[in-house]
């Protein structure tokens, strides 16, 4: 009896399981980016092309999942928030090159892979937020290790990809030993153990817990537009660091096509759409990032923060130093 019941039930479950692969007019996206950011873009894409967009949102384990799935993976398009994720996918040979004039024309060479396996869509700056009372100052990443900021710096976990990329850039610029000293300095200046999100650090400045924090540029705009968080943002200035030297550290969010993408045509169309003027404008407006496409304006709010000089360190170099950065972060026990 139980055998039979079990058989019936497993059959029932199997039948109830949704099947995704195979259907014609759709495209499957694995997204590191959050739903509220990309959903309006996908809706617009579906509206224009009639292609349905299926999404899995995940912050963690995407590359692992993709490599496990191998050639049967349903994934077509991969959206990431960080250069190291793109490089990781590329290193694991989970991507395929996409030859597209539209993409190449739209995106400057330094924001896409030389082998066309990935394309940047937006850039974001790793800013230093400072308490308003400190006034307008030129900050550098290097001075975060200066003892004058003792107990006055807040940041999220050092292991977060945004911070890892910054540390990797420091390694590329100053070498391993100097970066280690720098990290020790920053750690000893922390007002509290690294925790929370970039926004939570701004909140902490608002609360008076610290004076400086690290945070991506677009969060400033988002906080200004949020009823609850506006008071946090009002308490700080956003600063573009290292303007007198190499420029502010820039990271990209990007897109790539999975190696075994079942819907290559739709995938390419979606990628091109994301680099289109319209989509790039949406990125700029709704998410307050810097569009990579030349000629697309940033949002008014973002423009009001002023122009800045970006560090033109090649993205591949940053990705290459990622592991060293992680080892250094562990060495100074940054998060402990």
């Amino acid at each position: 009896m139980f055998t039979n019941t079990l058989k019936k039930i497993s059959l029932l479950v199997a039948v109830a399981m949704p099947f995704f692969a195979g259907a014609a007019d759709e495209v499957n996206v694995y997204s590191y980016r959050q739903p509220f950011l990309v959903k309006p873009l996908f809706d617009k894409f579906t509206e224009q092309t009639g292609v349905k967009v299926n999404v899995v949102f995940a912050k963690k384990g995407m590359a692992e999942r993709l490599s496990r799935e191998g050639k049967h993976s349903p994934a077509d398009v991969l959206l990431t928030t960080d250069i190291s994720r793109l490089i990781e996918l590329q290193d694991k040979q989970l991507l395929q090159p996409v030859e597209s004039k539209a993409l190449v024309d739209a995106i400057p060479a330094r924001y896409r892979a030389s082998d066309n396996t990935w394309y940047g869509l937006t850039t974001r700056v790793r800013n230093i937020y400072s308490a308003k009372r400190l006034g307008d100052t030129d900050f550098t990443y290097e001075e975060l290790a200066d003892p004058k900021w003792k107990g006055r710096i807040c940041t999220r976990s050092g292991k977060h990809p945004y911070n890892v990329a910054l540390v990797a850039a420091m390694v590329a610029e100053h070498g391993e030993a100097e970066t280690l000293t720098w990290l020790e300095g920053v750690k000893s200046n922390l007002a509290r153990k690294p925790q929370g999100s970039d926004r939570a650090q701004v909140q902490a400045i608002h609360q008076g817990l610290c004076d400086l924090s690290l945070g991506n540029s677009y969060y400033f705009g988002k906080m200004l537009k949020d009823d609850k968080q506006k008071v946090w943002a009002d308490a700080v200035n956003i600063n573009f660091p290292n303007q007198k030297t190499r420029g502010a550290h820039v990271n990209i969010s990007g897109v790539a096509m999975a190696k075994y993408a079942p819907h290559t045509k739709n995938a390419k169309a979606l990628m091109e759409f994301l680099a289109s003027k319209q989509a790039q404008a949406m990125y700029a407006e709704t998410n307050m990032e810097y569009p990579v496409r030349v000629g697309v304006k940033v949002s008014k709010l973002v423009a009001s923060w002023g122009d800045f000089k970006a560090d033109h360190l090649p993205l591949e170099t940053i990705a290459a130093n990622r592991k060293t950065a992680l080892v250094l972060l562990d060495k100074v026990q940054f998060d402990l």
Binding site: A14, F19, F20, A21, H72
Partner: peptide, 8 residues
């Protein structure tokens, strides 16, 4: 059939 087990 696609990833009927690990993708559902």
């Amino acid at each position: 059939p696609g990833l009927v087990l690990s993708g559902s």
